[in-house]
Amino acid sequence: MGKSATVLGREIGKTGRQMNVLLHRYGYLTGEPGAYSLTDKGEKYGTQEDHYRGNVRSLHYYRQWTTTIWSDETLAALLNDMANAPTPPEPAESFPDDDVTVAEAEPVGATDRGAPDSTGTRVDPRMVAIAAALLVGAKAAQIAAPHAQRWWSETAVPTTSRVLKRLKRQDPSDNDAET
């Protein structure tokens, strides 16, 4: 069964991004974040698959992306490389916060919450999840706004007007008789 870098990372207490940095440093990947490709060494353990999703009416969707699936033996090979290397190899290319991501990674079972951000403060993953949910809700409201506006003007207002007209047309003597 194939595993993503995120799944591999969970097994040793790393994120998917940290795993990709490690795979890059130890020669399994080449390229840069978001555009990695397999090296000859990486092709022994992983496969890449291209995906396409087209929605020509919206520019907000990615139409093409590549996923890398790693074999079950990848983690053992990477850990073996890490154990046998006297010092961690330097990255071939420098990426923003590349060294911080791997060097300051929290161990499994760390008691404090969140990883440090660029200012050195800890970020609570629950707050990140709440912020993401709020952003998704705001985007959904933005997408739904034209539909809601059309429903309001084409359905709600005319129906309300008809009901009000019917109520006004009712005979006032019928209302007096009921009381």
Results as ranks from 00 to 15, higher is better:
22 L>G: 03
34 G>N: 05
25 R>E: 09
122 R>G: 04
67 T>Y: 06
90 E>I: 04
82 M>F: 13
117 D>N: 13
96 P>G: 02
25 R>L: 10
25 R>V: 10
68 T>W: 01
72 D>N: 08
109 G>A: 06
119 T>W: 06
109 G>W: 06
12 I>A: 06
32 E>S: 10
130 I>Y: 12
90 E>F: 04
86 P>G: 02
124 D>A: 06
15 T>Q: 10
129 A>D: 07
15 T>E: 07
127 M>F: 09
106 E>S: 15
65 W>N: 07
21 V>L: 12
15 T>C: 05
54 G>K: 05
84 N>Y: 11
76 A>H: 12
20 N>S: 09
118 S>Q: 00
110 A>S: 13
115 A>T: 09
131 A>N: 15
97 D>V: 05
13 G>Y: 09
56 V>T: 05
113 R>K: 15
63 R>Q: 11
19 M>P: 03
116 P>G: 08
113 R>C: 09
83 A>W: 05
10 R>C: 00
77 A>L: 06
67 T>C: 10
96 P>K: 00
15 T>I: 09
47 T>S: 03
116 P>M: 07
97 D>W: 13
115 A>Q: 14
86 P>R: 01
40 D>V: 12
69 I>T: 11
36 Y>N: 04
96 P>T: 00
20 N>G: 07
23 L>W: 00
72 D>T: 14
85 A>G: 11
26 Y>R: 03
48 Q>P: 02
43 E>M: 10
124 D>P: 06
46 G>V: 07
25 R>H: 08
99 D>F: 07
90 E>W: 05
79 L>A: 11
124 D>C: 09
61 Y>F: 11
55 N>S: 03
30 T>H: 05
59 L>E: 11
44 K>L: 15
15 T>L: 11
102 V>W: 08
28 Y>T: 01
79 L>S: 03
85 A>C: 14
21 V>N: 02
64 Q>Y: 14
37 S>Q: 11
21 V>M: 12
37 S>L: 08
122 R>E: 03
84 N>R: 05
36 Y>P: 03
73 E>S: 15
18 Q>A: 14
131 A>Q: 15
90 E>C: 10
21 V>T: 11
10 R>W: 00
23 L>K: 02
8 L>F: 02
9 G>R: 03
111 T>K: 13
20 N>Y: 02
14 K>R: 15
60 H>S: 13
45 Y>E: 01
31 G>Y: 05
105 A>P: 00
119 T>G: 10
12 I>H: 02
46 G>E: 04
45 Y>M: 00
35 A>E: 01
89 P>S: 02
71 S>H: 03
77 A>S: 12
79 L>N: 12
82 M>Y: 09
21 V>Y: 09
87 T>C: 11
25 R>D: 08
77 A>C: 06
84 N>V: 03
44 K>I: 15
44 K>S: 11
77 A>D: 00
85 A>R: 04
11 E>F: 00
33 P>N: 01
26 Y>F: 15
97 D>S: 06
11 E>K: 02
92 A>F: 13
91 P>C: 01
8 L>N: 01
124 D>M: 04
111 T>N: 14
21 V>W: 09
117 D>P: 04
83 A>G: 09
14 K>L: 15
19 M>W: 03
97 D>F: 14
47 T>L: 02
41 K>A: 09
20 N>R: 06
116 P>F: 01
93 E>H: 14
128 V>L: 07
25 R>F: 08
108 V>E: 15
119 T>H: 07
124 D>K: 03
33 P>T: 02
